[in-house]
Design a protein around this nucleic acid. Sequence first.
DNA 1: CGCCGGTTTGACATACTTCAAGAGAAGTGG
DNA 2: CCACTTCTCTTGAAGTATGTCAAACCGGCG
Lengths: 244, 244
Amino acid sequence: MTVDLLSRQKCSECPIRHRAVCARCSPEELDQLERLKTYKSFKAGDPILWRGDTLTYVASLVEGVATLGKTMEDGRTQMVGLLLPSDFIGRPGRSEIDFDVVAVTDLTLCCFQRKPFEALIGSTPHIAQRLVEMALDELDVAREWMLLLGRKTAREKIATFINMLVQRQHLSGAENDKRALVLPLTQEQIANYLGLTLETVSRQLSAMKKEGIVQFSDRRHFEVVDFPALHMATGDDSDGGMLV
Amino acid sequence: MTVDLLSRQKCSECPIRHRAVCARCSPEELDQLERLKTYKSFKAGDPILWRGDTLTYVASLVEGVATLGKTMEDGRTQMVGLLLPSDFIGRPGRSEIDFDVVAVTDLTLCCFQRKPFEALIGSTPHIAQRLVEMALDELDVAREWMLLLGRKTAREKIATFINMLVQRQHLSGAENDKRALVLPLTQEQIANYLGLTLETVSRQLSAMKKEGIVQFSDRRHFEVVDFPALHMATGDDSDGGMLV
DNA sequence: CGCCGGTTTGACATACTTCAAGAGAAGTGG
DNA sequence: CCACTTCTCTTGAAGTATGTCAAACCGGCG
């Protein structure tokens, strides 16, 4: 369920200020955005957008986790993107969205009406530039995932997935203990992300626990014990980046 | 092997004029591009760019077919994109490319030095806009393909692939007989595109021939005989778009 | 003609799925 | 605070789509 918050936080204090679409904006440009924006909140499990919905607004994910997914008629589903804070939802230029966006945790969006936002793109090149950049980054990620989906084994998929979590979590400056990781997804969701069944995910995770590569404190929190082994298991670059 | 052609064709007579990055350009903007561009030709099988190469130029594919691919150390490879005329190669803002680009047929590129091109993006919004649009389109395609790679059966993959060929070939206004199709890839390449082995591709194609869904005239030319059955076999929207 | 890349076909192997049952957590309501 | 339901995860046994290995074929091309 949507909750519209009236309170508009200052963009300058926004946690995703330097990574979102607005990253490159000058103070004046930021002012324009600030007048346009609204916050919306969603509870874990809430659908944010359904495939085929008219896209009246676009948004930056401020806090929380969401998934992009596609579902076939018989129920098979494939997650095609994992949205973390600073990621962008929606596409200027298209009025319809082509997949489902679902809140995985409680989350809040920074929304802009699509039309005015599109106008802004035309007039402020900093946003357009950043948008191209973000789209191309996502494209790289999507292509990396195509390799994973098409060619990697179950074990490699899991290892790659964990490795990605590690990197994205570090990147976003969440400076908790370097090794403590939050797993926002259920195993069924992981399965949908990796093109596997939940049973296979469970079995592979158990195996990696038993082998001492990862260790779970509870269902949602774990840490990587053996990084080299994890890298090894991804199937990527056999040497990989030396330890963090 | 690269051949640099000196002759600069008029942009206004270019076959991909209205679909490539330059689609939206005004005559004056086109002039600027015209001064910047060079043509390069490649023979079938030539590598155009290797993963890790420095990206000194970006380009539009004018004629021919190329593939984007990723290869793992042990040789497994996954094609992550199929480039047809008007598609764009390279990404402004990044100096390195993250996958291999290979010419499948003889082809010609319309190249721009990356630096001047990036400058142009800053100054002419029409190019930036078109670039966002194209990047987001590619992203949609990539995500559709993720569903295919992660969840579809071999048969659904093949059917979807053929269906895509049909649509792209029609779209690009090549007005030969509506049903006659050119298959630019070998079965091994198709396999790499679909996350299968060549044997599976061969078997599924044979099956579809036997069932009278498609028909081959020679190794590279075929036609779809039974469109409804083809749609059915893709696993998408069971009704699908009524016949063309 | 004989080679060579691409394709076909068969027999066999296996990684992953499917089906099924049970055990923990975790939320819900009295 | 304790039953009761509902998720989520675990583990096993059996099935299957697809991969692997191997041989033969086919059409071009030098």
